[in-house]
Design a binder for these strands. Structure first.
Lengths: 337, 337
DNA sequence: CGCATGTTTGACATCGTTGTCGCACCGGGC
DNA sequence: GCCCGGTGCGACAACGATGTCAAACATGCG
């Protein structure tokens, strides 16, 4: 009866007539092994189809070669892009990505972090579901390198990658006011407890106040509340709303669908700029003006910062990287008509 | 000097005055431990903030509680949805998902599989980059449970979840022919080596032949070849093309952009049905008719089948699950005008 | 009371790898 | 001839958990 177990390093060593440790050295590209033995051991590994057991390796070396990544929503294109870039960056650094999603709930997020920590991840890239309570630091071991992106966590000592939320929001709002004579602009968004939301609202306010206009924010707790009925009530019953500044992708989608359901036409009845650009924004009628976040870059930079920490090439204060956005002017804000 | 290592089960056992094994039993909800000790050990775990090391657990028990997932493209909404569902299903079964992407390249795919196998994944959910060569079975250990989805692998003994590619394609094509009098319909797609592509083409052919029309397929090796210039040449130089059947999401996006660049209007100059529906398809002008794949369900069912294997409740022949699609008729095919 | 039966418990080996340490060997400088 | 430092290699323990097996203990029955 053959033992059908996968071959281990012990098998390799026996077959090659060397000690276990020497085989291990070859596996780790250690230099102190003679040319001849290295060659021989390599051959045996090849022949046996040897595959190192990363679990065992990680157990002993205290490095799992895995990083965790948590986002609120896996099917939001903003996050998919970030994940894609993060995965590539991780692979380039010889790590795998364990992916999970919080659904935007802090308690789910905590549970997922717990799971990841138990798996001994070497680091964590996270777009937090909440910036207020210090719910991350209580779950995350103090010595685990963490990079937050999109949403920063207050009073924490993590690296963070964001965009110029406030200034970009100001600029988008100002554009509609200054170029297209919008007077009554509303900001529509969800999850007001998020810092990104607050910042974007602040930028919106900046622009309104500078123009001497009264800001009017329409924030709901959860996106599901952005129904056509709600829109009708908020935007049209009292009347006179010129323009909408929508605070993120999900809201934009729902606003667009809602307006269509109400028979209102964007670009004519009402102007719109979306925070978050996406693949087909230019194909809509009217094409959608948007603040484009460099989503892939956000994921890539966050992961890059993480690996800098892991390699020890950075071990000082938390760093903050603020990326620029691009205001993509298309038709929905009134341009190109 | 305090030892700042994270507490281990040995620490817990010592603190609780029991043996290592008894603590282990409590961790694994073994029944044969007295009420009193269980309680005590639980308390100690709580107090010390004990977190089981999943690497060590996995090493000994030969189960990593992780599954691998590989898709060609992380930012394709079809795959994001599938990933989302898979991740939820995995979590419900106490597993994590290690995600990676092949970019559609068989050699990258092999390398990623190798990485995952070394990490001792318990199972693999994969949308293969290639169905022809038997490149999967040569890399995947014979005893690793695998479920393929979207793209089946020929002559392999894996469970598979797909949709009714051929019939759905036939139906979509027939719709344009029968309801809207299309005579010259072309099928546009990429990566003709894929089975899904071939099946969809076959369905398209079925419809054309049944109507006594000559099929005309425009397949390119890679999506990047779907430029406006190429479209112009294929569709308009010889002239007379009525309608397009686009074989997947990426192609649809590029065809839409290309047609716009060429100044051709979908729904008027040329009809279009897309294989793959997406979030904003209904918001386009004209709204896009599409074959909607139940993408979340594909991911969920694939993962569900995998866990059935893992739990041993299924250990027979490979199973094949074929899910229905929905032909969503909007304006681009000529409906509702 | 003795013995069979079943429950609780712990000592020890083990999973597959890497870390520690020490030994043997080599050539070179005194 | 002797000591030295560096290289090449291996024996052994360790990482943190689980599996094995047998001992200790409680219980029920004749």
């Amino acid at each position: 009866m053959k033992k059908s177990h996968a071959p281990t390093l012990v098998d390799v060593a026996r077959e090659a007539g060397v000690s276990l440790k020497t085989a291990s050295r070859v596996l780790n590209h250690s230099v102190n092994v003679s040319e001849k033995k290295t060659e021989k051991i390599r051959k045996v590994m090849e022949r046996l189809g040897y595959r190192p057991n990363e679990l065992a390796r990680g157990l002993k070396s205290r490095k799992s070669a895995a990083i965790g990544m948590i986002v609120p929503n896996l099917s939001d294109p903003f996050f998919s892009s970030a994940i894609k870039a993060a995965q590539e960056e991780a692979r380039a650094n010889g790590h795998v990505v364990i992916l999970s999603s919080s659904g935007g709930y802090a308690d789910v997020e905590r549970r997922e972090i717990e799971t990841l920590v138990r798996r001994q991840i070497d680091g964590l890239v996270i777009a937090p579901a909440d910036s207020h309570e210090n719910h991350l630091s209580s779950t995350i071991p103090a010595d685990l390198p963490v990079v937050t992106f999109d949403e920063p966590v207050q009073s924490a000592r993590y690296d963070v990658v964001t965009v110029t939320n406030r200034e970009s929001a100001r600029q988008a709002t100002a554009h509609m006011i200054e170029r297209h004579n919008a007077r009554s602009v509303v900001a529509i968004g969800a999850r007001p407890h998020l810092y990104t939301c607050a910042e974007r609202v602040a930028g919106y306010r900046d622009a309104m106040q500078k123009a001497g206009l009264a800001p009017r924010t329409c924030l709901v707790q959860h996106e599901s509340q952005l129904t056509p009925e709600w829109l009708e009530k908020e935007l049209f019953v009292s009347g006179g709303v010129d323009a909408i500044f929508s605070l993120n992708w999900v809201c934009t989608i729902l606003v667009l669908k809602g307006l269509r359901a109400l028979g209102r036409q964007v670009g004519r009845d009402i102007l719109l700029i979306s925070f978050d650009d996406f693949d087909l924004a230019e194909m809509l009628t009217p094409s959608l003006s948007a603040v484009r976040q460099p989503s892939e870059r956000l994921g890539a930079e966050a992961t890059r910062l993480l690996f800098e920490r892991l390699k020890g090439s950075a071990d000082g204060e938390p760093r903050s990287l603020v990326l620029p956005t691009e205001l993509v002017l298309r038709e929905s804000c009134g341009c190109r008509h």
